[in-house]
Design a protein around this nucleic acid. Structure first.
Lengths: 146, 146
DNA sequence: ATAAACCCTCGACAATACTCTAGGGCAACT
DNA sequence: AGTTGCCCTAGAGTATTGTCGAGGGTTTAT
């Protein structure tokens, strides 16, 4: 059993446009065509597309995904390289998750301010300080209400 | 004490280009100019830029960051709106982290295959299956070695 | 007072990842 | 045979986020 591009789009969550775009970019060399030139997607193809989505959704660039797919097409002798690629990507993703968590702390800090029962006064004080800093440096006050 | 754009770039980790770009996009209305038209960054400005970076680094779009900055400029009466914005963003970030973790599982699954002592045979079997699927559907075999 | 190192704006260019249109073929149903 | 609804390619268009060059003014040190 095979799937048309429309069905493959539904199953993968990608748009038809995106599937064709990925094909153009060399991400889907494993998708065969029928005699009319139509793409026919197998279940195995959809599995591989799922892997592509995992890589894409974790921030891998299309050019890098292509390198991985090239390895897949080249055959089992590329497993070492594939492992290196995925391990490096995995590390990058974890590092990124760490960075995001770190930056989220900065946001939570602001949120705590806004959630404080005394938020209005605290924010006003913050603003006063900023305005004072501008004055101290003989700068125009961008916070002034006109 | 104030900072030139170069110093602000060093302190913030953004490039001079990016700072000017952010200013152009309305993200830095709080940065004052001196009499020569040069930007002068205060410590308060750098604090706010740090918050902008936290938002950017967690995936907030510039247009959304601008909405937040507009609130900041408007005054303390916008704290409720700011809180809503940041809370919504925080939820989106956590949801995204969850999605990334989920997709990472798919990658780890592949990695486990490549890390198996018997990886070569397993990958070969995977490939055999894919080829067989193509044959069963009377499709050309894209895996064939030419 | 002149060179070096900054700063400015404006607008072009670039990279990434789609998204869509035009023009045309194919398949199924009536 | 015609209509409908798919499929195809090529290439243009879009959105986002920078990055850079040209042309010109400013500041600092010598």
């Amino acid at each position: 059993m095979t799937y048309t591009i429309k069905q493959a789009a539904e199953k993968s969550g990608l748009s038809i446009y995106t599937l064709r775009f990925y094909d153009k970019e060399g991400l889907l060399p494993f998708v065969a065509r029928n005699q009319s030139g139509y793409r026919e997607f197998t279940d195995g193809d959809l599995n591989l597309i799922h892997t592509i989505c995992c890589l894409k959704n974790t921030g891998m660039k299309i050019s890098a995904i292509r390198t991985y797919i090239d390895d897949v097409m080249a055959g089992p002798q590329t497993v070492d390289h594939r492992r290196e690629l995925l391990t490096a990507h995995r590390d990058a993703v974890l590092e990124n998750q760490r960075q995001v968590a770190e930056n989220l702390k900065g946001i939570d800090f602001k949120l705590a301010l806004y959630e404080d029962p005394n938020a209005l006064a605290l924010v006003q004080a913050e603003r006063d300080l900023a305005e004072q800093e501008k004055r101290a440096n003989h700068l125009e006050n961008p916070y002034a209400v006109h």
